[in-house]
């Protein structure tokens, strides 16, 4: 289990999106990879680390040197992170921004609680995101 439950006084407010985020496919960037291809499949497009020039893959996608391809519809695929940016994502709050807001809200709560005499170091609480 994560390091949590340090002592009484945990914040009660559950993070609204935690349950949704727990099932989201959010993946971190990775590098220094040596992809293998299972039998029966075509080779993937060129690795961004091995070929810095934009190049079309077998499926007609043009990957930039950063491993990003922009579709005609405006959607953007990022092979290094596995993320897909849909056109609406340019306007909506991103997952990272939601996290920043959540943390800032909690920081504001903690700062306020400290002014009220609470030992905020002792109420630190890391939620189990999978518990919602």
């Amino acid at each position: 289990m994560p390091s949590m439950h340090h002592r009484p006084g945990a914040l009660r407010r559950a993070v609204a999106l935690s349950a949704a985020l727990s099932t989201a496919f959010l993946l971190a960037a990775c590098d220094d990879l040596s992809p293998t291809v299972p039998d029966g499949f075509d080779q993937p497009g060129p690795s961004p680390s091995s070929d810095p020039a934009p190049a079309d893959d077998d499926l007609g996608l043009t990957w930039g040197p950063d491993g990003v391809a922009t579709l005609g519809s405006g959607a953007v695929l990022d092979r290094a992170t596995g993320h897909v940016e849909l056109p609406s994502d340019r306007y909506l709050e991103s997952w990272e921004e939601v996290q920043t807001l959540e943390m800032a809200r909690n920081a504001a709560v903690a700062a306020c609680a400290r002014l009220s005499g609470l030992d905020v170091q002792a109420v630190r609480w890391e939620i189990d995101p999978l518990s919602g």
Partner: peptide
């Protein structure tokens, strides 16, 4: 592996519950 910061739940996975007085301060600050 999911990001967490400073939020919590009323009852933790191990059955832990917060101190009511502390929680009142937190709720007011919220």
């Amino acid at each position: 592996g999911l990001p967490v910061a400073f939020a919590g739940a009323s009852v933790g996975p191990d059955g832990f519950a917060p101190d009511p007085e502390d929680q009142a301060v937190i709720d007011a600050c919220y």
